[in-house]
Design a protein around this nucleic acid. Structure first.
Length: 106
DNA sequence: AAAGTGACGCATT
DNA sequence: TAATGCGCCACTT
């Protein structure tokens, strides 16, 4: 793993997402200056670091990837619900208001 | 050096 | 709706 790699930047960004908020693979990718959202998923794959809230990264419309590596869909959903998020079907209720945008943090 | 591999996203079928 | 296909790009063989 290269020093200062995109992976490192991605993880640092993800750490900035506040509790109870979420971001998306695409937004993180953009903030990390890579055009490929897939790289974000890669950077988080198999994460064991408890200081890295990788469960706060979801897909574009506020849905959870079935490929989340720590418990799959349900594992991630439980973590998010524990932080106060609610779901309607497969998607986060009021997703837009919980979405954390790196360029204009709130 | 070249090919394989994805926790995506978007367009198309 | 769901399924495919493809561009994307950093890492691994």
């Amino acid at each position: 793993m290269t020093k200062n790699s995109v992976f490192i930047r991605i993880r640092n960004l993800v750490r900035q997402i506040p509790l109870g908020r979420v971001s998306t693979y695409g937004l993180v990718a953009k903030a990390a200056n890579t055009k490929s959202p897939r790289v974000v998923g890669w950077a988080l794959r198999g994460n064991q670091d408890s200081t890295l809230p990788c469960h706060r990264v979801v897909q574009k419309g506020g849905t959870i990837s079935p490929n989340y590596s720590l418990g799959g869909y349900l594992g991630q959903r439980r973590r998010l619900e524990k932080e106060g998020l609610k779901f309607k079907g497969r998607q986060i209720i009021d997703f837009d208001s919980f979405l954390y945008r790196f360029d204009r943090p709130r």
